[in-house]
Write a protein that binds this DNA or RNA. Structure first.
Length: 490
RNA sequence: GGUCCCAUCGACUAAUGGUUAGGUCACCACCCUUUCAAGGUGGCGGUACGGGUUCGAAUCCCGUUGGGACUACCA
């Protein structure tokens, strides 16, 4: 049987980085086995729906290179792929369960259920729906049930979980899992508003859409026994299950917004590359064995297997992501500089800088090893696009009046250096250093202060060559004027 | 509280009964060097604990401890 997997997010906001990893693993598994990857939107809770979510989910997946074979956008023979368009299907299936007597009507109000839980808590027992004491078709009898239904009384349909026995299933990642039926709650399947809960819709759709492997987050592990029971209630064969380890905050709780960015959007905005994000999250909970760190999507597809997915949760470590992104930044500078220029241009424009592409490209080449993300160049290398802000602390610790004369001499050297290249500048500065017995390091630092205002940066000879003679001379003039106003003595 | 899951350096992980427990990030030092990076070299640092099984255990079993998820007419 050919593999069919799905990613089934709820449109309750931006796509979460954890969701992206789940989608990625499904995608890798499908591609590895030559199967199909389905995107299904689970919007059965109208109250949590956030407009624009579906678009963000699809855009984020596309950005990452995770293209579904079937989806609301791509279509497919198993549609519709949006659950709110399938409500009639769920209602029919709930009806089917009623007829098979594996589900039943219940009429309890939220308040009654709340009181039930309070009673159970007070009695020190685990909260669960008490079929024998609450208002349902068993306690009310067939007559009363029909009457309430006819009167339009709000009703839910619940799963009739066996009182005895156990549910057993094999998880592809975690092995055999056994849960006693007495610990499984009579889950609501159809809400009183006529919409299905996740559990019903999910099981019905996975079956109808021919899903062979359910690969999802570990948070679903506790409800899987309910799902197995549901398959049995319908008389269906359950799919294979694989529950992925969670992505964690630094404190090892489930990855959440409190500790930083979790939306894929955020990482796109910060200028992370899709190949870096994909590579990074692929290795969070899975590893092909061996010492390699960098993989292309094709290589991930070739190597992926459920057997090598870890069981323990993985902390999302930004420092390593940054390192990885820097690796891809270097790679892109070599392979696709024009693409980087096009990406950095709008970031610069936002600050009101509009240099030509050639110049942007050269600045990227000059500075890219000093940042992790491309947009950082606008910050780190602002002085390449506009007049410098002098680091006053650096100035005070570096500058003294004797340096003014040296700087003026350096200015004369710069004026006469032709061609105005890094190597020519280096040669001239070196000669001056030897003749005047001034350490080269001091010259570099002095020029850096005057021209960039900063303590750190790329090599000064390269920086000056790129800035151009006129601009360098202008900045030295400006600095000289500024320094007399800010000199320690004044 | 209950149910279930999990446990190798600070983080991500490799080692599927036999290795001086390996690699990457981070951190530290050194080299390179006009600064900072990048790069190179080296270092720091780990099998949660206790019992078994075995000639031999990170690996298998049991217990303890710790962590997490779930416990809705949310997903």
């Amino acid at each position: 049987m050919s593999v069919r997997v799905r990613f089934a997010p709820s449109p309750t906001g931006y796509l979460h980085i954890g969701g992206l990893r789940t989608a990625l693993y499904n995608f890798l598994f499908a591609r590895h086995h030559g199967g199909r990857f389905v995107l299904r939107i689970e919007d059965t809770d109208r109250t949590r729906y956030v407009p624009g979510s579906v678009e963000d989910i699809m855009e984020s997946l596309r950005w990452a290179g995770i293209e579904p074979d079937e989806s609301p956008l791509h279509g497919g023979e198993f549609g519709p792929y949006v659950q709110s368009e399938r409500t009639e299907i769920y209602r029919q299936h709930a009806q089917q369960l009623l007829e098979r007597q594996t589900a039943y009507y219940a009429f309890d109000t939220p308040e009654e259920l709340e009181r039930m839980r309070e009673r159970q808590q007070a009695a020190g027992i685990a909260p669960h729906y008490d079929r024998s004491s609450m208002r349902n078709q068993f306690t009310l009898g067939p007559e009363e049930t029909r009457r309430l239904l006819a009167a339009g009384e709000p009703a839910t349909i619940r799963l009739k979980v066996p009182l005895h026995g156990e549910v057993k299933f094999d998880d592809r990642i975690r092995g055999t899992i056994v849960v006693p039926c007495k610990d499984i709650d009579d889950q609501v399947l159809l809400k009183s508003d006529g919409f299905p809960t996740y559990h019903l819709a999910n099981v019905v759709d996975d079956h109808l859409m021919g899903i062979t492997h359910v690969i999802r987050g570990e948070e679903w592990l506790p409800s899987t026994p309910k799902h197995i029971l549901l398959y049995q209630a319908f008389g269906w064969e359950p799919p294979e299950f694989a529950h992925l380890p969670l992505l964690l905050n630094p404190d090892r709780s489930k990855l959440s917004k409190r500790h930083g960015d979790v939306a894929v959007r955020d990482y796109i905005a910060k200028g992370y590359f899709p190949e870096a994000i994909v590579n990074f999250i692929a290795l969070l909970g899975w590893n092909p064995s061996g010492d390699r760190e960098l993989y292309t999507m094709e290589e991930l597809i070739a190597a992926f297997s459920l057997e090598r997915v870890n069981k323990a949760g993985a902390v999302f470590d930004l420092a390593k992501l940054d390192w990885m992104n820097a690796q891809y930044l270097k790679q892109r500078v070599e392979r696709d500089l024009p693409g980087l220029v096009a990406q950095l241009r709008p970031v610069l424009a936002q600050r009101g800088w509009n240099p030509d592409n050639e110049y942007i490209g050269r600045v990227i080449v000059l500075l890219h090893e000093r940042v992790h993300r491309l947009p950082e160049i606008a910050e780190f290398g602002a002085y390449m696009f506009t007049l410098p802000d002098y680091d006053e602390e650096f100035f005070r610790s570096t500058w003294d009046d004797s340096l003014q004369e040296i700087l003026e001499q350096l200015r004369s050297i710069i004026e006469t250096t032709e061609p105005f290249t890094a190597s020519a500048l280096h040669e001239q500065m070196n000669r001056y250093s030897r003749e005047r017995n001034i350490p080269f390091r001091q010259i570099g630092t002095l020029l850096r202060l005057a021209i960039t205002g900063k303590r750190v940066g790329a090599g000064m000879m390269d920086t000056m060559a790129l800035l151009g003679k006129a601009e360098v001379l202008r900045r030295i003039e400006l600095f000289l004027a500024w320094s007399t106003r800010h000199a320690p003595g004044n």
